[in-house]
C-alpha cells in the first residue's frame, strides 16, 4: 500500500475532516443538579463523539429546537425529578412533529422500573438506570447511530 493513501497526507493538508457523531445531552424539567448528565457527556466525548450539552431546566420544546439546529444523531435525557412520564413522551411527540422521529432518544436518571415499559412503548429507545456502566451507554449510542457515520 502506498503511503499516499494513509491518513495524514490527505487529512490535515487537504482539510477533509472526518464525520463525527453529534449527541445532544439535556436535562428536562426542574432538576437541581446535573452531575449524572455531565458524566455521560464526558464518557461520550472520550469515545470520540461531539456532545452538545444544554444544561439544566430544559423544556421539551427547547430540547427539540436545539436538536434540530445542531442536527444531532441522538438525544440523551437525564431526569431525576419524577416528571419523566410527561416530559419524555412530549419530547418524542415534538420530534415526530418536526420530522425527526429517526433521531433515537435515550434516558437516564431516576426512573422506576414500573414506568419503563410505557416509556419504551412511547418511543424511548433505551433507559439506563443509576449504576449502568458507561461503556454500555457508549455502545448503545454507537449501535443506534451506526448508519449515520
Amino acid at each position: 500500500m502506498s503511503e499516499l493513501t494513509q491518513a495524514p497526507v490527505n487529512d490535515a493538508a487537504a482539510g477533509t475532516p472526518q464525520p463525527r457523531l453529534r449527541i445532544l445531552i439535556a436535562k428536562p424539567g426542574l432538576d437541581g443538579h446535573d452531575r449524572g448528565a455531565k458524566v455521560i457527556a464526558r464518557a461520550l466525548r472520550d469515545a470520540g463523539m461531539e456532545v452538545i450539552y444544554t444544561g439544566l431546566r430544559q423544556t421539551p420544546e427547547m430540547i427539540v429546537d436545539a436538536a434540530a439546529q445542531e442536527d444531532v444523531d441522538a438525544i440523551g435525557l437525564s431526569i431525576l425529578s419524577g416528571a419523566h412520564n410527561t416530559l419524555l413522551p412530549r419530547v418524542i411527540d415534538l420530534l415526530q412533529a418536526a420530522g425527526m422521529s429517526d433521531v433515537p432518544v435515550f434516558a437516564g436518571g431516576i426512573i422506576p422500573e414500573e414506568d419503563v415499559p410505557a416509556l419504551m412503548q412511547a418511543g424511548i429507545a433505551a433507559i439506563f438506570g443509576p449504576g449502568t456502566p458507561l461503556e454500555e451507554i457508549v455502545s448503545f449510542v454507537r449501535a443506534r447511530t451506526a448508519a449515520h457515520c
Binding site: 475532516p17 463525527r20 464526558r42 472520550d46 461531539e50 456532545v51 444544554t54 444544561g55 420544546e61 439546529q69
Partner: peptide
C-alpha cells in the same frame, strides 16, 4: 479522542425557541 463537549448553549438558554435565532455549535476537529 477527537471528541468534544460543546456547552455554549448553557449560556444561551434564553434564546431557545426563538424562531429568529439559530445557534450552531461547532468543534474544531483538529
Amino acid at each position: 479522542t477527537g471528541g468534544a463537549i460543546l456547552g455554549d448553549r448553557i449560556r444561551m438558554r434564553e434564546l431557545s425557541g426563538d424562531p429568529g435565532v439559530f445557534i450552531r455549535s461547532m468543534a474544531s476537529r483538529g
